[in-house]
């Protein structure tokens, strides 16, 4: 017997509770669920944004890098934020796009971890594959309700000796590759990463991987107006996740004097 008069005469949600056997307090609300029903405008653009995230597979696992900037339009607004985030023991995610949406995702994933891993306490933990699938369902679901989370996300990790690296974005598009980059990096850094990594994933050690990453970050810093020379690198290997403190990128600007329109030239 359903004691809530508001539910009387309404159809049940067959997908969720086909036999009407859920306890009262969790029984689903079958009110209208239409994207246009509540007559509001959804997100049309990101507000506070992070730029590229880079990632590659190497001998010991995966490496991910991102700078520490969150821009407000063209203003370099927050210069010490963390865009790489640990999810459980085996996974790192990194996001470009809207930073408040990203913070929401972090909270959501933390709650997911508590409900799926901590409270179950049965040895079934979530690895990068599961996290990526979950994120892709979440992102696609949001975009289908015309209310996307405005991010491109890289998910990388190592579990049971298998390394995994994949991408998911605000449309719910996914793909996987041994090198990945989001945002501006997809145009500028991805070709460099491919050239350096593809086909030799198993030959690259951590030092070389770091070198490749910092080279790409440097190029991005020269070319991307929304980037910063402060960055972090995360690795996921068999021994777990490690996210570095923020580091400074070595850059040279001596050549700028010779560039037309930059320095003190008059002509």
């Amino acid at each position: 017997m359903d004691h809530f008069p508001t539910n009387w005469g309404r159809p049940r949600n067959d997908a969720f509770d086909a036999y009407n056997t859920y306890p009262f307090h969790v029984r689903p609300d079958n009110g209208p669920r239409d994207a246009f029903a509540d007559n509001v405008q959804r997100t049309q653009q990101p507000i506070v944004t992070g730029t590229s995230v880079l990632a590659l597979k190497y001998k010991d696992g995966i490496m991910m890098a991102a700078d520490c900037l969150a821009s407000y339009g063209s203003l370099a607004r927050f210069k010490d934020i963390q865009r790489l985030h640990e999810v459980g023991k085996f996974t790192v995610i990194g996001a470009s796009g809207d930073m408040s949406d990203y913070q929401y995702l972090q909270t959501t994933l933390d709650e997911l971890l508590i409900s799926e891993e901590i409270t179950a306490a049965d040895g079934h933990s979530l690895g990068p594959v599961e996290i990526h699938e979950y994120l892709s369902r979440l992102m696609y679901g949001r975009r289908s309700r015309l209310n996307p989370l405005w991010n491109s996300i890289l998910v990388g990790g190592v579990k049971d000796g298998k390394s995994f690296l994949a991408y998911v974005d605000l449309l719910g598009t996914t793909y996987s590759s041994s090198t990945l980059a989001t945002g501006y990096g997809a145009y500028i850094a991805q070709p460099l990463l491919r050239k350096a990594v593809e086909g030799r994933e198993m030959d690259i050690d951590e030092n070389e991987a770091r070198k490749i990453m910092t080279d790409c970050l440097r190029v991005l810093f020269y070319r991307d107006a929304r980037s910063l020379n402060k960055y972090q690198i995360a690795t996921v290997t068999d021994s777990g996740v490690a996210i570095s403190p923020s580091m400074e990128l070595g850059t040279q600007w001596g050549f700028a004097e010779g560039i037309r329109g930059y320095g003190a030239q008059t002509q």
């Binding site: 049965d122 594959v129 599961e130 990526h132 699938e133 369902r137």
Partner: peptide, 12 residues
């Protein structure tokens, strides 16, 4: 399978 791309743990 849909949400996590994983066979459901039997105990759950």
């Amino acid at each position: 399978k849909m949400v996590f791309n994983r066979p459901v743990p039997v105990n759950r």
